[in-house]
Each structure stands twice: as C-alpha cells, then as structure tokens.
C-alpha cells in the first residue's frame, strides 16, 4: 500500500510553458472540442495526424515523459481489456487464429486497434490538460463552463467549490490514512494477509479514525469559511480575475481547426 503516495493520475506539475499559461476556460473548451474531434475520426491516418498534434503539444509543455507515462499506468488495464474483448468477440473477415471456440478475426483486430488508439489518445490529451492546470484553475474553468446551466438552477459555483475542496483534501486524507495505517501497524494490525472478509474487517481500525478525522476537518473548514462570511456563489467576485488573451483564442481556434479539418477531409 506504499504505492498510495505515487498516484500521479492528474497530479498537477507547475511550469511556465505555453500550455501552462493558457487560461483554464480556453483549455477546457479546447479539450472538449478535441475530444469531440477524436470521436469523429474514421481512419487510422486520422489518428496519426491527431497523434502528431498531441506530440507537438506534449513537447511544448515540457513535462517529463517518465512522469507522464507513470500517470498512464492505471489506464493501461482498461486499454488491454478493451483490446482483448475486441480481439476475441468481434467477428467477421479473415480468421487469423483459432483455438477451440476462440477465434481472432480480421474485424476484431481492426476494431480493437481502432478503439484502443482512440482510448489512448483520449486519455493522453486529457492528462496533458490536467497535468498543466492547477486544481484551482481547473475548478474555475468548470465553474465557467457550468454557467449557462444556471437557467436550469444548476449551482455551478457550489459544484466548483466542492471540487476544489475535494481536490484540496485528497493529499491531506491520503497522508492521514498513511499515518493512521502506520499507527495501527505499530500496534500489530495486519492489513495485508487473510481472505477478503478478514481484510475488510481488519480495515475497521483504519476507517473509523479516518472518518472521524474527515468529519473533524470538514467541521473546522466550515467554521473557517463561515467566519470569513462565505455564503455561496451569488454576487461573489474573484480576487484574481482571469483575462482571456489572444493566446487563448488561438488555442481554441486551433482545436476548432483540427475538428473542422477532420470533418471536412473525412480522415
């Protein structure tokens, strides 16, 4: 369980590249357009061009590639799972391999590789955005995107605030659970052996203190926010106003351009 510290999926890395400096709103809108574009791609060459674009963006972000790849690890299993499912269960075309009732056929290989590529590009593009956007900027961007939904009474600000708080407390709670786990291990608790029921029961000494402390922290935070007169999003202004610059327009237009090119050329 010492791997808990090394979760990097979506772990922001500060920097000063073009991507880092882009406004979160522009980044999120751009990301949405690119994801849509990804689902419009119909050929492998389309993925090739998209991949090329991603590579340029990645290099310009100056993120260490090792760190980036580590963030991909959790998704690897889903990718492999998709690949195997398609290989084995999509039928049609020439038969490449046969073992009893199991066959790998042409359409399966084609569709499997196609879906896997799409999935990988989807994840790496999203990861590129989350790794270059601080959680607070990200929540700001979400709040902005949710703004049109106000007419349906969707509390955009509150959702963004909850996201910010949740993100803020992930490392804190992780540290806390690590500490409690060690404290109980020092008292001879065993979290690693036994069958699944035994293990679940052995988690009680970890979970009870963790919940107690989460509630205590929530309580403290609520008091701290109320004593600063927080009362939700209405009429709330921001200390740091985000300015949309030419660069941000350029980013969104680039994304639009890619989507348009995909639709028009039919790749």
């Amino acid at each position: 369980m010492s791997g808990m510290r090394s979760i990097t999926l979506g772990h922001y890395l500060p920097g000063n590249s073009l991507l880092h400096r882009l406004d979160p709103r522009a980044k999120l809108v751009g990301l949405l357009i690119l994801i849509a574009a990804l689902f419009l791609i119909r050929t492998f060459s389309g993925f090739f061009y998209f991949g090329l674009f991603f590579l340029i963006a990645f290099i310009s972000s100056r993120l260490p590639w090792r760190y980036f790849l580590r963030g991909l690890k959790p998704v690897l299993y889903i990718v492999i799972f998709t690949l195997i499912l398609h290989f084995l269960f999509t039928k049609g075309g020439r038969v490449f391999w046969r073992f009893g009732v199991l066959t790998i056929e042409e359409n399966g290989v084609y569709l499997g590789s196609f879906m896997t590529l799409r999935l990988i590009l989807l994840v790496v593009t999203t990861l590129l955005v989350t790794l270059t956007t601080s959680p607070i900027a990200f929540a700001d961007g979400i709040e902005f995107l949710l703004r049109p939904l106000r007419i349906f009474r969707v509390p955009g600000h509150e959702i963004a605030m909850m996201m910010t708080i949740a993100l803020r407390f992930i490392p804190t709670l992780m540290e806390e659970s690590d500490k409690i786990r060690k404290a109980q291990m020092a008292r001879g608790a065993d979290f690693e052996s036994g069958n699944i029921f035994r293990r679940a029961r052995n988690l009680v000494p970890l979970l009870v203190p963790l919940f107690v402390s989460a509630f205590r922290r929530a309580d403290d935070l609520a008091v701290a926010m109320e004593s600063r007169c927080y009362r939700g999003g209405e009429n709330r202004t921001k200390m740091r106003q985000r300015q949309i610059t030419g660069l941000d327009y350029l980013g969104v237009f680039t994304a639009c351009g890619i989507a348009l090119a995909i639709v028009l050329t039919g790749v």
Binding site: K179, I180, A183, Q184, A186, R187, P205, V208, P209, V212
Partner: peptide, 10 residues
Amino acid sequence: LFQFPEHQLF
C-alpha cells in the same frame, strides 16, 4: 506512539 495519537482511537 505517533504525533496526535488520539487520532488512532477507534
């Protein structure tokens, strides 16, 4: 005994 050991009571 860790820091703030009262947090380990369950």
